[in-house]
Simulated scan of single mutants.
Amino acid sequence: MSAGASDLPLYRSIAADIQTAIERGDFADGVTMPSENELTARYGVSRGTIRQAFAFLRSTGVVSSRRGARRQVRSGPKVQSMTELVSFSRWARGLGETPSSRTLGAALAPASGVVAEKLGVEKGTNVFHVERVRLLGAVPTMLESTYYPGSLASLISVIDLDVESITDRLADHGIVFADAEHAIDAVAATPREAELLDLAPGAPLLRTVRRTTDPVGEVLECSIDLYAGEAVAFVVRNSLAAGATSRVSARTGD
Rank of each mutant, 00 (worst) to 15 (best):
A92P: 01
R169K: 14
A178M: 01
A69M: 14
E221K: 00
S246D: 10
N126S: 15
G105A: 02
A55K: 15
D26C: 11
M142Q: 08
V45I: 13
M82H: 13
V121P: 05
I18R: 01
I159N: 09
E122Y: 08
G150V: 12
L155G: 00
V219R: 03
P215G: 11
T98P: 03
G113P: 02
T167A: 10
T60W: 05
V248W: 15
G253T: 15
T141Q: 04
S100A: 08
A241G: 08
R251P: 02
L155Q: 05
V121D: 04
L57Y: 05
G76C: 05
A188E: 12
T213N: 05
S6Y: 08
G229R: 05
V236W: 13
E144L: 05
M1H: 04
A21E: 15
A242F: 11
T32A: 15
V63P: 02
A138M: 06
V79Q: 05
R211I: 13
S46G: 14
R102H: 09
L226N: 01
L108T: 10
R237A: 11
R132Y: 06
L206K: 12
H182M: 12
R90A: 07
D185P: 04
G44Y: 09
V127H: 00
P201E: 07
L196P: 08
P34I: 02
I159G: 09
T245H: 15
D214Q: 08
F177N: 01
T40P: 03
Q72R: 13
L95I: 04
P204A: 06
L39M: 10
F54K: 00
A183S: 13
R192N: 14
G68H: 10
S112C: 01
I175A: 06
G4I: 09
G48A: 13
T245Y: 15
I224E: 14
R169M: 10
G243E: 15
R24F: 14
D214N: 14
R93Y: 01
G253N: 13
L135R: 02
N238V: 04
E122S: 14
L170R: 00
Y43A: 01
R51L: 09
S6C: 08
A138K: 07
Y43G: 00
L226C: 03
E117V: 07
G229L: 10
E144P: 01
G25V: 12
R90M: 02
L85E: 04
E195I: 01
E218M: 13
H173G: 02
G96H: 10
V63H: 08
E97S: 11
E97C: 13
S101P: 00
A28S: 13
V158F: 04
